[in-house]
């Protein structure tokens, strides 16, 4: 089992390398390089060559990649093409918003979704289950900004609570004040996470509940409580942790849309601006951060699956 986990971690490492190559090359294919973009109208062959040398753009591609990666690993994310500001500084202002919303979403959304998903699986076919299925199916299929629109209509326009944009500073705010501050973005993100998480948790528990050893437990005359707590849950934990990690990874898309929708600045707005202004240093840096988070969550998902397999935990 230990070797399996090491193997999976090695694969994760290789994946991050592959992802960095994709991101690096992806931003290299466009005509014109950083030197041209920076100098713009003032570009002359002489100062272009000089700037290229200073930025290391005259080096072979693999060496540029290596320099970029090396700097990235050491915490230097490069300098923005627009305004020459270090990307580190740009991020420093914004990462808190993204992180707070993501963490609060996980803290609120995951437990609620698990409870809803597991209870739905305990009463399959009940009207509670059917309503929940209908709602989650619709939310999964609808775009994130539809969910956001819906919440704004209900809370801001109908109930008159909150604001359609998130404004103000987060400095010095307590936990509850933060939740209030980001209530609508967190609400939207929770709905996005919950819609998938509830469905997948329900399916995972139902899958375990239909296995022969549960039927055996019923035929052994065990109580409902015991069947669920001793037989079903231990076998469902692995798949559920796997599902949680997967869904937190999916949040990457959600967080981008939500930041734009509620117009507060975070990492996602930064990368979107970077794409719009073709500031590929920013796109590379932030893109890499998002992808690394995604890959790590995927890794956790797979390791959870390995850890929860009793056949691997207790080898012959």
């Amino acid at each position: 089992m230990f070797t399996l986990i090491l193997k999976r971690m090695a694969i994760g490492f290789v994946t991050i390398c592959a992802v960095s190559i994709i991101i690096f090359l992806g931003t290299k294919v466009l005509p014109g390089d950083a030197a041209q973009i920076r100098l713009g109208q003032e570009a002359t062959p002489e100062n272009l060559a000089a700037l290229r040398e200073r930025l290391g753009l005259d080096l072979p591609m693999w060496q540029q990649y290596w320099n970029w990666l090396n700097a990235f690993v050491h915490g230097d994310l490069g300098k923005s093409l627009a305004g020459d500001a270090p990307v580190n500084e740009l991020i420093a202002d914004r990462y808190k918003n993204t992180l707070i919303v993501s963490v609060l979403t996980a803290a609120v959304g995951v437990p609620i979704s698990l409870i809803l998903g597991i209870t739905a699986a305990m009463f399959p076919g009940s009207s509670y289950d059917r309503v929940l299925t209908l709602v989650t199916v619709s939310l999964v299929a609808a775009p994130e900004f539809f969910t956001a629109t819906l919440l704004v209509l209900i809370f801001v326009f109908w109930l008159g609570i909150g604001n359609a944009v998130v404004i103000g500073s987060i400095d010095g705010k307590s936990f509850w004040e933060l939740i209030q501050h980001f209530a609508l973005p967190i609400g939207v993100m929770c709905l996005i996470v919950a819609s998938q998480l509830i469905r997948m948790t329900r399916a995972a528990v139902l899958n375990v509940m239909s296995s022969p050893y549960i039927e055996m437990a019923i035929l052994k005359g065990l109580s409902r409580q015991r069947i669920i707590l001793r037989h079903a849950v231990p076998n469902a934990v692995g798949p559920i942790v796997n599902i949680i990690a997967l869904n937190l990874a999916y949040l990457v898309t959600g967080v981008i849309v939500v930041e734009i929708f509620f117009a507060y600045s975070g990492l996602a707005t930064l990368i979107v601006q970077g794409v719009q202004t073709r500031d590929f240093v920013v796109v590379q840096a932030v893109g890499m951060l998002f992808c690394a988070a995604y890959v790590v969550l995927m890794l956790i998902a797979d390791i959870a699956a390995i850890l929860s397999n009793p056949r691997l935990r207790h080898p012959k």
């Binding site: 296995s211 039927e215 055996m216 437990a217 035929l219 009793p310």
Partner: peptide
């Protein structure tokens, strides 16, 4: 009750 496949009817965990 004793089922046909013991491998499937024992809880692996």
């Amino acid at each position: 009750y004793l089922a046909q496949s013991a491998a499937a009817t024992f809880n692996p965990a």
